[in-house]
Amino acid sequence: MLKDKKTTKAYEKVLAARDGKRPSGGFYISRMLDNFIEFHGDRRYGDDSAIIGGIGFLKGEPVTVIAMERGDTIDERMKRHFGCPTPEGYRKALRLMKEAEKFNRPVICFIGSSGAYCGIDAEERGQGEAIAENLFEMMGLKVPVISVIIGEGGSGGALALGVCDTAVMLENSVYSVISPEGCASILWKDSAKAPEAAEVLKLTAQDLYKFDVIEKIIDETDRTSEEICYELKNFICDEIAEKKKLTTEELLQERYEKFRKIGA
């Protein structure tokens, strides 16, 4: 389950975010949506089971949901390659977002994996291009996009579902430009120093809230995942209602400025 004790230590949060027992994307879909229908494939090459995408009702409103899913059993995890999306996953996500735009449905993204799938085949099919295309197109997507970091938000592979109007993080989720292990091995030639790296990377939800990179933190301590889902669902519904008051131009302008101000 989620952490039962409050922690401020960055690496404890990293471990909590990676915990195999922590709910993955599919869990939130099943608890928050009614009549969910899953859709498959990128219409280009294949289907990536690290990403679950589809449509359903969120409190009576049709929405498109795209979620990274790590899987529960070892077999399932191998099949879903631990929730690390391939280029097909990102292209499926973009296809479903474009479909959402056509039917004027808000988009909700759940992010939680160590990052984009790493392998020869992913490079052959343009992992970089797939992520780049998502960033580019999501900046202009004419419907509200809410992104929720539910576990580990691993670098560009997370951002590819993270160009949004409102970014939410669970209390013990993390979001980073590089894994603490990767950072430690570059910086100190020693990946065992990951706990130190986690601190200096400032990757916790609390850090990101301070940097104005995210808009909301959902508390986890002493709460069941059902209670967390309940608050998250209400928050997402409220945000969508707020964003729907805006004209398309206002929505896109606000999204542009949300990112434009970071490091300006």
Partner: peptide
């Protein structure tokens, strides 16, 4: 992305993409 600026570096990818769009 430059690791020494953490998440702020990552967000530059989105920022530049927005301007390019």
């Amino acid at each position: 992305a430059r690791m020494q600026e953490g998440i702020l570096s990552l967000m530059q990818m989105a920022k530049v993409s927005g301007a390019a769009k």
